[in-house]
Design a binder for these strands. Structure first.
Lengths: 219, 219
DNA sequence: CGGAATAGGTACCGTACGGTACGGTTCTTC
DNA sequence: GAAGAACCGTACCGTACGGTACCTATTCCG
């Protein structure tokens, strides 16, 4: 994981470094390990600066989410002309990327944090995570699906429904299992392949798009 | 919600009452609201008894999970002879039950609790929830799917894969969204219907099992 | 050069939690 | 009916956190 990639727009380099350290602490030890004193010690800054920059602990958590998301960028290829093979490839790449993002240390830690808070803060962090965290990946998938329809390769009434179908086929209950502490898949690529196969059977227009059943060795 | 249904095997009535109160506190205010002092006050018992019965706070949490699971029973109809309509009905009922269970107050609260702890306790609670919490519902689905195959109505290579496909089609990312604080679906039945349609297209043997596309008004 | 802003270090405060100890009360059991 | 266990209520302890205050060091800028 690159520690100090492109600087964020909203934070000074010093603040970014502190936020990166905060994420490290959170990933290592969960929200109990992310104390203001501990962060100040680990990041060589003062608690007073933390409160000046972020207001209070909740502000810090929100800043961490915003900071992490500023580091996520996805390529958008929705403009391309799609062949059926290209669509399948792009869908599989999307599915694999999705699985990898969801299985990432930082993503899991932030989701755990927001879920833990959601029962008492009116799910402010949860909203943040849903609205800003998934926007990029949602937009990418949405673009891909719409492009597939425009190219006559996919058929569906509601793009939302189709996207959620794809998401369900790719992820199933894996995200929750990982949030609960279970290890991820051994082979994301195989899972992505199977999910896209099923998705194309459901929503593809190419009638021979269903492949032979796989050896099914993913889980 | 029936407060005091069948008594558990592992807990005395008094302990069950305390655990029920603990669940109520947890649902109301999240894990911050579930303090030993608060529980003792709310349940009219002494902290000393809590520690005598459950060892420590983690023991109490584990007992809450175990207690809640002892109240969940599912009907098992896997012995029946299945027609295609009966299979579809049973699958839809299963899907609807699954959505309702996942959206339940107590289920969400316990999952949030276990997820919050999973980053620091080696996911002991998470394992508990996964291994014991889903066993019943998993067994029911597994039985249904296997019965469908025996009756020649479903085809698949791996029952696990098929089950996860069904699960993904039914739930998609809804569980995580609800854990993050979002409201559930407006119409679980419509979602169940759509998911089972898709599942039967993928794994049914009856070639005309795919129905006309629905009006898609679930979400 | 000098003052103001910025930020690090540390000490401190109030609070609330998990866990323990103890005296009094009810319930069982012989 | 008495001995004893189970249990309630409460008070208590140590700890650790969030948040604040104060003081110093560095940097920036006129």
């Amino acid at each position: 994981m690159p520690a100090d990639t492109a600087a964020s727009a909203k934070f000074t380099p010093r603040q970014s470094a502190v936020l990166a350290e905060a994420l490290r602490l959170l990933v290592e030890g969960g929200d109990k390990a992310l104390t203001t004193s501990g962060l100040a010690r680990a990041a060589n800054c003062s608690k007073e600066s933390l409160y000046k920059w972020f207001g209070d602990r909740d502000g810090l958590l929100a800043a961490m989410i915003s900071f992490q998301q500023s580091k996520v960028r996805t390529a958008d290829r929705s403009g391309e002309r799609l062949s059926v093979e290209a669509l399948r490839d792009h869908l599989e790449i999307f599915a694999r990327d999705l699985l990898e993002v969801l299985a990432g240390d930082v993503s899991l830690a932030l989701n755990r944090l927001a879920i833990g808070q959601s029962s008492r803060d009116g799910s402010k962090l949860g909203k943040l995570l849903l609205e800003h965290g998934r926007r990029e990946i949602d937009r990418r998938a949405r673009g891909l699906i719409e492009a597939g329809k425009r190219s006559g390769l996919l058929r569906f009434n509601d793009a939302d429904d189709a996207y959620h179908t794809l998401y369900g086929l790719v992820v199933s209950d894996l995200h929750v299992r990982m949030l609960l502490g279970e290890l991820g898949l051994k082979d994301n690529t195989a899972q992505a392949h199977k999910a896209v196969d099923a998705f194309l059977i459901l929503h593809g227009t190419n009638k021979d798009s269903g492949e032979a059943p796989r050896a099914s060795a993913a889980r």
